[in-house]
């Protein structure tokens, strides 16, 4: 019995050590980023790592705003992320209501076209999409291009439809008998009942838009419309020598994500389990 007990303690200890090592490994790049952002340039690459810089260069956090138009990039990204998320949540919950709760001719065929496209990666039609947007709609180098691109995904419709189907039909029927319009049922009954799915969709869309790289990289080549991810890439090329600045700018872009993540942690975890397959 005693041996058994001692063995259990040993197993638990090993478990904690493994977990702590993994956690440190996960956090290491973030810690390195933060420390490097205030280090003198020579200490960034020094080996062994200098965890306590000889002097803190806080000016990096001031310079990043002038060396590239970082404020413009952040403003563009916020505008995009908010607009796309708003449109995505409204239009897909709107469409999902009809697919889940209304009967009308052509419903299944329309839904099938959404369904058929989940297997098609965006990367496989990004070129014709760009030709269309740039040549015929003249939307390249405007934020509209990214809004059109990201606001109408099939994913949102799927997620919301799935959730709406779990809300009992009787609720809608009762409201209809009371004389409520379909729009009223959508706004006053379905949406309040679908808060978890709405939160998940909001958070996922916002983060995806904030982090998107390839879309903005293709469409937004002028400084005044670039997003923050493209801006970071500018440090990578033009200001190759200043790793400190690069790290400071990187850290800045992670702040909103960290705030959203800590606030909506539960939704993230539930959302991953709920959404199942997301391309």
């Amino acid at each position: 019995m005693n041996i058994e007990k001692r063995r259990n303690v040993a197993v638990t200890a090993v478990l904690y050590i493994v977990l702590i090592v993994i956690t440190l490994g996960t956090l290491f790049p973030f810690a390195w980023m933060l420390v490097s952002s205030i280090k003198p340039e020579v200490e960034i690459m020094a080996y062994p790592i200098v965890w306590l810089p000889s002097k803190a260069i806080w000016s990096n956090y001031k310079e990043i705003w002038t060396i590239i138009p970082l404020a413009t990039f952040i403003r563009n990204t916020v505008v995009l992320a908010v607009t796309v998320t708003f449109l995505q949540v409204i239009t897909s919950s709107f469409a999902a209501y009809a697919f889940a709760k209304l009967k009308f001719p052509g419903r299944d065929i329309l839904f099938l076209t959404y369904f058929a496209t989940i297997a098609i990666p965006w990367q496989a039609y990004m070129v014709p999409q760009f030709i269309m947007m740039a040549k015929y709609f003249h939307l390249n180098n405007t934020l509209w291009s990214m809004i059109c691109l990201q606001a109408f995904s099939a994913f949102g419709v799927f997620l919301m439809r799935q959730f709406f189907m779990s809300i009992p039909d009787e609720l809608c029927e009762a409201a209809r008998i009371d004389g409520m319009s379909e729009y009223g049922i959508w706004g006053k009954i379905m949406l309040p009942n679908a808060k978890p799915a709405l939160m998940t969709l909001t958070i996922f869309t916002f983060v995806a838009t904030w982090n998107d790289f390839l879309g903005p990289y293709i469409y937004l080549t002028k400084d005044e419309v670039k997003t923050i991810q493209i801006g970071l890439r500018m440090f990578n090329t033009q200001y190759n020598t200043s790793y400190g600045l690069m790290m400071a700018a990187s850290a800045i872009t992670l702040v909103p994500l960290l705030v959203i993540f800590l606030a909506g942690q539960k939704q993230f975890v539930e959302g991953v389990a709920m959404s199942g397959i997301k391309g």
């Binding site: 790049p29 990187s250 872009t253 993230f268």
Partner: peptide, 12 residues
Amino acid sequence: PYIASLIAVSTV
């Protein structure tokens, strides 16, 4: 790390 911006962390 999953939601951290890829561009930022890949630089590290």
